[in-house]
Every structure is written in C-alpha cells, then in structure tokens.
Design a protein around this nucleic acid. Structure first.
Lengths: 249, 249
DNA sequence: AATTACGATATGTATGTACATAATTGTCAA
DNA sequence: TTGACAATTATGTACATACATATCGTAATT
C-alpha cells in the first residue's frame, strides 16, 4: 500500500533539531486532575477548548479529546457540544462491580473450591420471588439450593429460582459437575440484571448451613436476570462474616 | 452517558458498495456483541485481528481499535499485545454502582436529610487505616465521625480518616453546612477509588449511635480514594438493617 | 414579542499514516 | 536442554486532517 497523499511534512528537514517526545493522553489527564485539585479550575468552571489545550500541551486535538473523554466518562468533567467542557459540580461517580463466577472467585484467593447441591426440585415460587420476576403463580419454576465451599469451609449459600421456560435445557441438568451458578453463566446469556446488596441476620437454617450462630450478620447479594424482558433467574447469595466484595478503579 | 443514535445502522452485510457511510465504532461494538451472543465466537476464542476486522467492516483500523478497546474496558473481551483479542472466558459481567452523596440518596427517597458531627479531631490513624492508605505513622490525619439521618432516624454512621496533606483546605472546615462527605466530593477530586462491601455485627458504640441492639447486622460500605497515587481519604459507612444498595442495568 | 432560521463554534468521530510497545516465536549458542 | 536474543506481530497511541453534529446566540420572520 504505502500511499502518501499528503507527503507534506515540509519544513521538517532543516528546522527541527530536538525530537519532541509525544505528549500522552495520560499526561494530559494527570495535568487536568492536578489543576482541578490545585483549584486552578473550580467546580462548575468552563475550561479551555480542546483546540486551546492542544496548543498549550503541544499535541494534537485528538489527544486532548481522548484525555477529556475519559475524564468525562468517570464523571470528573462534563462536556456539551457547543457549550464546552466544565469541571463537574457534583462528581457523582459510579463504581464498577465485577461479578465473577463463585468458583473463580474462590480459586482466585488460592483456596480450593467445592460445592454441594442441597436440593433441587420443581415447585411454585413464593410470592416475593414471583413478584420480583414478574411471573404468574403457575409458572414452572426450579428451586435449587447450593452450598459453595472454599477449602472446605462454607463460603456462600446460594438459594436460586429458575424460570424453566426461559432455560428449558436446565430440566436435564443435574449440576454434578457445574454449579448452577456456573451453568447459567455459561448457558443462559442475559441482557438485563438487577443486583441488591444488603446485610441480614442469619436465621436458624442459614446459620446451620453455614456453621454459624443464629443471628450472625450475613452479607447478602441478590441478583435477578432477564433476557429481553423474559425473566431467567433470581438468586440470593449469603456470605458469612469476613466476606468482602471489592472493586477498584 | 453520551449516547446518540447515530442514525447509521446500515445493513452492513455486504451489498453496500458505493457511497459508503462511515462505519461507526458503535456499529462495530454492536456487531461484535451480536456475534458473541449468537455464539459465532465462543468464550475463550480468538477473534480476527484489528486489521482483518477493519477490512471486513470497511473502516480504518483505529475505528476497530476504539470499538474493541471499549469492549475490553467492560470486560467483554480480553486483549494482549502480541497474542490478539479473545472473547472473555467468564463473561464476568459488571454492575455499575452509582455512588451518590448521602444527602442526595436520602432526599431521593423523599425523606428529610440531616446530619450531625460526632467528633472531629487530628490524631494518628490506627494501623489498618494507615496500611490501607499506605501512609507513614506520622502522617497528619483528621478523623471525623458523622451521623446521617433520614427523617430523624439514623441512616448512616460515617467514620472517616482524611489525609490532611492531600487536602490542606480541610483544616479550616468545620462541616457545619456541608457534611464531610459532601465537602470532599465537592473539593477533593480523586482519580482512583477502592470500595468494599461487607456485613458486620454492630459493636456497642455503633449500636448506641444507630439506636440498635448490639450485634445487629450492619451493612458496611467502605471507600478509599486517591488522586494520582496520593491517598486522600478512607471512610467506613455503616447502615442499619433494611438498607439495600441497588443497581440495575 | 414570540418563533423560526441560520451561522458560529466546540465537541464527536472517521481516516490514513507512522511509530511505540509488549509478547510470542524462532534461532542459535552455551 | 536451556537460556539469551532477535525477529515477528498484534495491539497501543500520536498526528494531521476532514467532516459530522449538537447547541447557543442572533438575526430574520411571523
């Protein structure tokens, strides 16, 4: 290929003695943050346009654009087409919470993973579950209870309801190699999900299963998923104290 | 944010020969997602290189690059320099957790917000806090404890450590109009953050402050923030039972 | 005065090009 | 066999350029 439509690059030959290191978009991000912090630019204030910044930093506008775009993505600044870029007044930011497969999560800590199915049967879902999934009373549901272990110590108690019609293949699945969690992740793509995080006191059964005293605080992670408006599953996952869900960014 | 319909959405397939509308990186993202969903490309599988995809879509490599970069950012695919791009094995989906200012969060529920500073003094931080912030023992720290109310009922107990050197202006702040939370959000931008979610039993003091029995399960939300490697603050927020952090997407 | 049309302007995105960088692979020597 | 090193290659990023698009302000029109 090797076309050279511009071929310009005229003056270069004789003029430039020192080679300028290209300015990275990272450098620019850092500099912008520094200025915000140093109160050179105050919240709500309009900052110079991309063109100006590019001139100031001695780089291309696209480079400034990328820096500003990424800052806007994490809510540090706000941009509008004709209006320009301004420092966010209320940098309401969002964290991204990674939701791994339980097995991977356990193994990532260097522990040995194991799970055991406590029960698996078709039955009518209780009202709260039906309501969350928005399903009629007679919808065929599969109820699976499963205990996940890390180094043979209870790690998570999973209480799951599956809408059979949405994942018919699950009828044949016995979960003897893959946990319901992993099976669904691999076999049932979803487009929407709602997660809830909270804390509760262990009831008698939960305490017994997790090997804890009744009333022990449990970390609750519940999740409901849909594929294009069709409810797939609702799961409630309980963790013993000490568990910490982390996200860094 | 920053969505726009593009209006393009051309059939792509193959027919369009003349007068090509530029292919948007959005189009490419969508197409890639479609292929993953349709199992054209399976988890773990290597997909064609940027050059090939650019040729296939009839666009510049940079455009494909942007599409793939953004998909990699949300964990859909994984990229390595010499190795190429592959579909993520464990489509560990991630939830976006919005982290509003407490006041806004309370007011959004139609409740009346109020807060009260329990203590505010300079003191050495305990070892765990220092460790998390990666600060030496003699770093000057400000410790602030604050109770947030919704309709006069305790909503959150905030226990915060601030690295004074990172936010010197805080020395003069008395927090009589803005809570530490809101003050920092407005005045101390950060570039990195780590959040942790867990459950604990209320100790005697926490129980007293929140008007609960000792041992009651509390939902814990802790957050540490940095601005370019400089630690800013570490905060631990405790919520009474009933609190549920939700995220839908 | 209210409404509409339009031009100016800042951001948004696509392209071709070039070079940088990381990581795998092949090659050769110890 | 193994370790060092170079060649190869896919991704990562920068640049100049061009055009697209959303808006704001203002002028023209109703």
């Amino acid at each position: 290929m090797t076309r050279q439509p511009t071929g310009a690059e005229d003056g270069v030959a004789g003029a430039v003695a020192e080679a300028r290191m290209p300015v990275s978009f990272r450098t620019i991000k850092a500099e912008i943050l520094k200025r915000i912090h140093a109160r050179v630019w105050l919240p709500g204030e309009l900052i110079p346009g991309e063109e100006d910044l590019a001139r100031e930093f001695g780089c291309a506008r696209v480079t400034v654009n990328r820096a500003l775009r990424e800052l806007a993505e994490i809510g540090i600044i706000e941009r509008k087409r004709r209006a320009g870029t301004r420092i966010a007044e209320h940098p309401l930011r969002e964290a991204r919470l990674e939701i791994p497969v339980v097995r991977v999560e356990v193994e990532a800590r260097g522990a040995q993973y194991r799970f055991s199915i406590l029960s698996r049967k078709r039955m009518d879902a209780p009202e709260p579950v039906r309501a969350r999934l928005d399903l009629p009373a007679d919808a065929e549901m599969l109820h699976v209870r499963c205990l996940h272990f890390a180094d043979n110590r209870p790690w998570q108690f999973e209480d799951r309801w599956i809408h059979v019609a949405a994942v018919p293949e699950i009828a044949q699945e016995s979960f003897d190699t893959l946990s319901p969690n992993e099976w669904l992740v691999k076999n049932a793509p979803f487009s929407e999900m709602e997660i809830g995080l909270s804390a509760v006191a262990a009831d008698a059964e939960e305490a017994a299963l997790l090997g804890l005293e009744r009333g022990t605080p449990l970390f609750v992670f519940d999740r409901t998923t849909w594929l294009l408006d069709q409810p797939i599953t609702h799961v409630r996952m309980l963790h013993p104290p000490g568990y910490r869900m982390v996200s860094r960014f």
